[in-house]
Write a protein that binds this DNA or RNA. Structure first.
Lengths: 333, 333
DNA sequence: CCTTTAATCGTGAACGTTCACGGAGCGCGA
DNA sequence: TCGCGCTCCGTGAACGTTCACGATTAAAGG
């Protein structure tokens, strides 16, 4: 009816208005416990009239579960993580959970403080895209059994779950695609060599090349940084050689960017002088001239599966495991 | 020392271990209130040894402020919002606030439930990128003075703040740029006509054209959807005409995408047959062939300023206002 | 020596909810 | 009539913290 009170409406306010105890109101709101159907409806009606909104803080404090989970992402401005975040948010809200977002900018120290903050907010679990570096602090900062699921990179502990892509397979498919298009001299530019994604994608590249009996030239592969600039410099090294490869595989969207910058810088054209296939789909792939093929990761599902696994760990119906989602080669039409 | 307890360490645990009252521990932790320096250090040492982490839920419940703010974004997978979110997250964490993220996928109903959820989580304030539609529910669902700051689009109520870009100026600068490059026949493709951004950017386009004495053809401007597909169809309408414009201005990155798709579909080349200048910067602008000019919005600062204003409203040191950040024309080098 | 004041610390209550009970009222069979 | 069980609802406590005091001690002032 009216909500002239400055103070938010509480269970007790509703109880007083309905002439019942606040416990009864609680039962009506939650639809839980033994309560008469009529009473319940009457209470709910009054609650709606008063504009009652449950206080999740109090609920969480008492019930010792916040119905919130933390999402720690290494670079929210990277489209890959933005899409994963969308998947996480969607799955979480569908299941009645909130998402606390933290961005680390690939800084392991910021990641640590972010995780600490999230823990202090008493999130029920954590989804982390680990930055490069040592993650031992997880074991000391967090309770032994705190539910954590890693995405994109894994966390080298069976206690923590992980949702990853089939990096080796994906890279292999890219090699096969390029070979089918007549390439034999294929190089690769990946991110920091310490990163799991770089390693696995490079491994996939190498084993596919071997399987197909193609030569792997050490100076055709380079590991730079995860940012376009570093990748550009690494690519220039490769492309300046007289015996440069005719095709290059990259391990992420930002590296694809860098390689394209390198090509432009050297006056070469992609798809003509050097063909490109890179990890991660992006909306502009089809709009480049010529369009480039990409190895798309199942970004939304990475987010959704991570949430599903995490909630399983939280309520004990599931456990930490490592799952890998297939990639998909997207060739320009 | 040891944290063998399954139960998290509380203030009382630390108090017992230190032989003081829990209030004293509280004072030491918060560095607030009158406490002896020695005592404080001793307590802090013990707290650290026990691995004490404050429970923000309890803190928030008692102090009636959660030190958290809600970020409701209409499309987190849009790079513009991802960058704004990065700004929000950075400014918020620097100021000791957490960020609760919600994604609405441009659905006003999802936006409403998201805002309700956020309010139940007792966020201290809300940053909202409003979806298209009627926002009257804000007045009924939220307390009268609840702090809300809109981004990208405003909320037609002086109660709520807004952080926007100088849309008219930006569009005007784009027109001037095109005119300087010799264009006189300029069209525009914008998003949904009900959107503030579409309107303002179109207005800026029109007034600049008039100011420069150039003809505005009704059939050179089109309003589609905010997604590439709709923009593509709208652009095809324009570009199929025999008297098509030689240049087009777009009102967002996704629309730029759509126009590029239309050009490709019609066998036309951007920068050759039709020049393009669009709102929102994106990493691939410089890698297209030829590169395209863009009107960059100050995305990070939009996020940061929104947080700054919101925190001002929350602690009473500032008030709701509408501020506009300058855009920047980025021409390919 | 008594009183005042400042510094330091402790105590009870409260925030809004859920948990674990306990108790009233009713119907039903022996 | 008594007792039993079921349904429904209420009461007190608790979650971990802060708030508003009050209590204690020691130094300072007359």
């Amino acid at each position: 009816m009216q909500k002239s009170l400055r103070r938010p409406v509480t269970l007790k306010d509703v109880a007083a208005a309905a002439g019942v105890s606040y416990q009864t109101v609680s039962r009506a709101i939650n639809g839980f416990g033994e309560i008469n159907a009529e009473t319940s409806q009457r209470v709910l009606k009054i609650a709606a009239e008063l504009g009652y909104r449950p206080n999740r803080l109090a609920n969480s404090l008492r019930s010792a579960q916040s119905k919130a989970l933390g999402l720690v992402v290494s670079d929210i401005e990277n489209l890959f993580f933005a899409e994963v975040a969308a998947g996480v948010e969607a799955e979480a809200t569908e299941r009645g959970y909130s998402v606390l977002l933290a961005n680390t900018s690939e800084d392991i120290h910021r990641e640590r403080t972010a995780i600490l903050n999230l823990f202090e907010s008493r999130v029920d679990g954590l989804i982390v895209a680990p930055a490069e570096g040592d993650h031992d602090f997880l074991k000391t900062d967090l309770p032994e059994t705190f539910p954590v699921v890693a995405i994109n990179r894994s966390l080298s502990s069976p206690l923590y779950g992980a949702v990853l892509s089939e990096n080796r397979k994906g890279a292999g498919a890219a090699v096969e695609y390029l070979v089918a298009r007549g390439h034999t001299k294929i190089g690769a530019v990946v991110g920091s060599p310490n990163l799991m994604t770089s390693q696995e994608r490079l491994e996939g590249f190498r084993s596919a090349m071997e399987r197909l009996g193609l030569p792997i030239q050490r100076h055709w592969t380079a590991a730079g940084t995860i940012y376009p600039k570093g990748a550009c410099e690494a690519a220039i090294e490769i492309l300046q050689r007289s015996d440069r490869p005719t095709a290059i595989i990259t391990s992420s969207q930002r590296i694809t960017q860098g390689v394209l910058m390198a090509l432009r810088h050297l006056g070469l054209r992609h798809g003509v002088d050097v063909e490109l296939v890179g990890f991660d789909d992006f909306p502009w792939a089809a709009l480049l001239d010529p369009p480039v093929a990409v190895i798309a990761q199942d970004t939304h599902n990475i987010g959704r599966k991570a949430v599903a696994m995490l909630l399983g760990m939280i309520n004990g119906t599931g456990e930490a495991e490592m799952i890998r989602l297939p990639t998909r080669l997207v060739v320009p039409s």
